[in-house]
Design a protein around this nucleic acid. Sequence first.
DNA 1: TGAGTTTACTTAAACGTTTAAGTTAACTAT
DNA 2: ATAGTTAACTTAAACGTTTAAGTAAACTCA
Lengths: 347, 347
Amino acid sequence: MHFENDIVKRISIKDVALKAGVSIASVSYVLNNKIDSRISKDTIEKVKKAAEELNYRPNNVAKSLKTQRTHIIGLIVADIANPYFSQIARIIEDEANKIGYTLLIGSSDENAEKFESLINMFCDRQADGLIIAPVENTAIHLQKLEKQKMPFVLIDRFLDNIDASSIQINNYEISQKVTEHLIANGYKNIVLVAYKTALKHLLQRNLGFVDTLEREKLKHQNAVLNIDKDAIDDDINLGLDHLFQSKTQQPDAIFFTSNKLAVSGLKKLVQLSLNVPTDVAVVAFDEAEAYELFTTPITFVKQPLALIGRTAVQMLNTKISDRLTPIEHIVLEAELRIGQSSKLKST
Amino acid sequence: MHFENDIVKRISIKDVALKAGVSIASVSYVLNNKIDSRISKDTIEKVKKAAEELNYRPNNVAKSLKTQRTHIIGLIVADIANPYFSQIARIIEDEANKIGYTLLIGSSDENAEKFESLINMFCDRQADGLIIAPVENTAIHLQKLEKQKMPFVLIDRFLDNIDASSIQINNYEISQKVTEHLIANGYKNIVLVAYKTALKHLLQRNLGFVDTLEREKLKHQNAVLNIDKDAIDDDINLGLDHLFQSKTQQPDAIFFTSNKLAVSGLKKLVQLSLNVPTDVAVVAFDEAEAYELFTTPITFVKQPLALIGRTAVQMLNTKISDRLTPIEHIVLEAELRIGQSSKLKST
DNA sequence: TGAGTTTACTTAAACGTTTAAGTTAACTAT
DNA sequence: ATAGTTAACTTAAACGTTTAAGTAAACTCA
């Protein structure tokens, strides 16, 4: 039978069986290397030859339906276009592929509704497990996942009211370290540029900063500039304008708590013709190509992305194969990469 | 029945049917809004109530097996960690979601073998269609796709020996335009930093450059620095060192034909303490955060990413719904964004 | 020799859906 | 009263696999 302009009928195990003159069960055994069930060399040859000649390719949809395993891992990030997440995604992709999984990626845009529909989509598609950078107000959905016994691990962020395996960095401590570094280098009017958020990991960054200022007896009123994540450029524009107009106490250093904040802020500093670090020192968070190419190389907090990705996949994989694996919280250490943007203040 | 520590049994249409006291067919009709088959208000209510109470979620694997549609679109890029591709991926993700598709992404690393296994993976997973940035020496695999009548469209790149729908930018013309722009601004010793490659779209960029030099009677021997994509930093290091050591004819302008080349090259220029544009002018390709933050904002070729992504999804979708749709080649226009890095040469 | 074992298969049910075809009761029209 | 129609369902096959269970021939050994 030949359909002139129709979809080419895909070759199934049935066609292979017919051509090889054996049962479909035999074909399945041969093609899946089920050596425990004894099959003659002759049959193996016949099946392999037929499969080859027909250009047989397995149908994973059917396979998944039968085996109840899709070998799909879902990944929910805030935005795959953000280099932080695209780098992590790439690492996870490779790591997942290595152990036979395919990665399905979704962007939540920090939006709880999109987040929920991604969760649903992954569940409906029968993903074997999920790696999730959770969004504010999504604890309910994660609890639902737990109830369904869907294996998942959290990365980057975590939520209070949910007890799930997670991989984080030492946000509080690294933020302390950054602040201490700036103070040690002679900066006294340090401003933190952070997000308006309830996300724990970001609040820890803020807290590490404020606590350190307090401990070092530096003023910390108005030391935090809170930015709306949906209006980064606008808020930073206004915020920095305001800060540098104030003749009383201009900041001598800025600590940006994310790459997007830093990139936006650096643009603004260029616009304001402020020199880094002579007019104002800068420390950033996460990586960005831009940090290396800025007039002066930027000091930044480098997250162990490869380790985060690898650990996430490994943890998830053990969770998938053994659902009784206890919950685990892993804290990885971020690194302070010191560039020129925060060097010893020349007085 | 309750399994203490086992996987929670997922609720199927069967359970809903049982609870509602109707057949599974009725449940299917109700849940899929098949209004053509007449169903009483009463039954509709019962089914919806049962589904709700049981928290029923459809099993897309089973659905796909039966309907022969997965509503999955596969996307093959060189590397999802590359901002050019992650931005495109994000646009495609949104566009695909809008019309009910889920995006599956794979990175080929410009490697023909990985490329082939991605193609196979997508086929085995029964993707409805593919959006592909093809790799060198992969025409065979694309031909195989054609033979199988798997709908696909090519983006970014294209191959000679394959007649498939594609979306490109006007590589040759925009490259001419860049070169003319540099010449118009007084630069005479322009060097092109390009990839060692057989990829057509990149060769067109090279050709647009060389042709323009020739037409303008400028020397074009050694005007192209070819970089191995697997050793970008090393090759650029050596190449630029060599160029700027030559006392005879130092370049006064560099045109980088990709974002990765540009970022690597700009780093090197910083190392060499060369000022842009007074020592050497620069034009780059594609976008990078870095361009805006460099000492002087970089002139670059901006691709219409959103349009590329949207067009790709639309073309693919019409191909999926009607496999007889004729092949189409779309050429979109890139834009030259003029920054400070190529401004009028001060003599 | 014949009961038991091993080898090399095949049969058939199942996974969770969709949907064409079948069924039955109620209604309509003569 | 009866044939025909319609409404509201249900039955069962199918999608392409996997795999437990069944079968039949060949071999083993007392």
